[in-house]
Nucleic acid binder design. Structure first.
Lengths: 164, 164
DNA sequence: TCTTGATCGTTCATAGTGTGAAGTATATTA
DNA sequence: TAATATACTTCACACTATGAACGATCAAGA
């Protein structure tokens, strides 16, 4: 009895968790595509624009790693941004292979606008909670993220059990 | 003083929240593409396969709403699944316009396999927490989701403030 | 019955995301 | 100097997604 009950609960909870994650994912996706349309910039280019925090220049390779896409994809993204006059590419004076990608003044403006909106959005999100709750939500997400990492590693190593 | 301090905290917390959500998003994306590769089925088709819970048949329109994509997209997804012999389409006997999409035996097997993996994955995720924590995480996500909804509605109505 | 309009699904053009192989140009090093 | 490694580009391909135009079918009303 004390053996059956927890399993039922666990099953129920995991289903609930799955649904919740899916809903949150969907909400984030909507938000991203909404902003992309408002800004009239493709999502990937917007994401790229956000990488220049205080950095003066980034390289294609660095962008590729930060965005977690292959280099050829970065070429396309950068070309799009250059075309929109949001970034410019100059040759590295020390190494002819490397191109340094930097924000144009216009790009900096865009980038700041966008990050202001994102910050505002997440502040609004926090304000939906009581002040005491906020810390808890964040630490919850922190644990959730670590757990996801952990489970991912479990999966990647032991996934072959599920291979058909 | 008592006016400055909370704002700093809020700013810090909202940045943390933003980063966490991004990381979680990225983790979920990886998980999805990982499973799609393992199953050798495109993500959209996998998502579609999962819609048949206990339902015998779905219509293209219904799938379109559940997946939140336009109808023409559904046509493509269904064609892919038919090609893989995972679903089949029959004419509605009462209404010649409607096509009923149902899982083939193979499709049912695939669907069950996949949902078993998903359930298992989320159970593993829960097991990373202490039993007392689990309830809390879920209720946290519940509130987060509602808050996201709420903020989304705020944004959609008042977003023009940010228009350039 | 015959239009009119609505609904359902399809086709096609277009855009965006992303990969991977092959290639060019430039370092680095043996 | 020749082999190798690195940085980026080009190109072909596959997947995701939208929206307009279209044909077929249904549901009413004149």
């Amino acid at each position: 009895m004390n053996d059956q009950e927890p399993n039922v609960l666990l099953g129920y909870q995991s289903q609930r968790l799955q649904d919740l994650i899916e809903e949150i994912l969907h909400c984030c996706k909507e938000r991203t595509s909404h902003l992309s349309k408002k800004f009239d910039i493709p999502e990937a280019e917007l994401r790229c624009l956000m990488l220049f925090g205080e950095e003066r220049y980034l390289t294609a390779k660095g962008i590729s790693q930060k965005l977690d896409v292959v280099k050829s994809r970065v070429t396309k993204i950068i070309n799009g941004l250059i075309h929109k006059n949001l970034v410019e590419s100059i040759d590295d004076p020390k190494d002819g292979r490397i191109k340094l990608i930097g924000l144009t003044p216009q790009g900096q403006r865009r980038s700041k606008e966008f990050s202001a909106i994102m910050t505002d959005l997440h502040q609004k999100l926090l304000l939906e909670f009581e002040p005491e709750q906020r810390k808890m939500v964040i630490s919850c997400l922190e644990v959730l993220r670590s757990s996801m990492e952990a489970v991912k590693n479990q999966m990647v190593s032991g996934f072959d059990l599920y291979r058909i």
